[in-house]
Amino acid sequence: MLELRSVTAGYDRAAPVMRGVDLTIAAGASVGLLGPSGCGKSTLARVAALLHRPDAGQVVIDGQPARGWRHRAPREQRTAFGVVFQQPRLSADPRLTLTDLIAEPLRAVGRAPEAAAVVPALAARVGLGKDLIGRRPHEVSDGQLQRACLARALVLRPRWLICDEMTAMLDASTTASLVHVVEEYRAEHGAGLLAVGHDRVLLERWCDGTTHWDDLTGGL
């Protein structure tokens, strides 16, 4: 179970973008969070993934309160989340090849030897062929790069996936294929999902339930 308890967060203490937001996702469940652009959904997603320190409130992961944010969060809490962002160009270090990009989390947690076996299989699973994974981000399309970013999010087998507008930059067929990969992974590993977006049709088909930003914040 992933619980956000009365989270107040933003970038200026005097004017937070959200006040007292509660959100609960049952283990293995998926929730779609809908809202207009700029309302604060991404900030909420970053709080949930322990990437943004809220001004007040708590994040509880499977019964354990988060013990810090960003680097201060213990590694096993941070890596419980696989995060995919909206813009693949900005989410990929331009100097790393796609192979290195996907292997990076394994290396960061000291499991580099596994990379040789895990990365090609995972790349194939997200639909990246052998000829593509040796390239750097500027040599592939947005869709291909987002596939690599999804593979990177899955490589440590997280218990929670946070997809922040993952498909907003992509065409319909790439969207379908990435959603399929996420759902396949969740079916195998029982991972929970928070999918943030503004595409009601997509999120209603993708997730067990959807919630609207206005309902979450009480229309504030």
Binding site: T79, V83, L90, S91, A92, V109, R152, V155
Partner: peptide, 21 residues
Amino acid sequence: RPYVDAAISGGASRLRVAVRH
């Protein structure tokens, strides 16, 4: 940049983010 966020989420230490990214 979001790739620093992604690195943190991938378990990278402060030093690793500084040196590698």
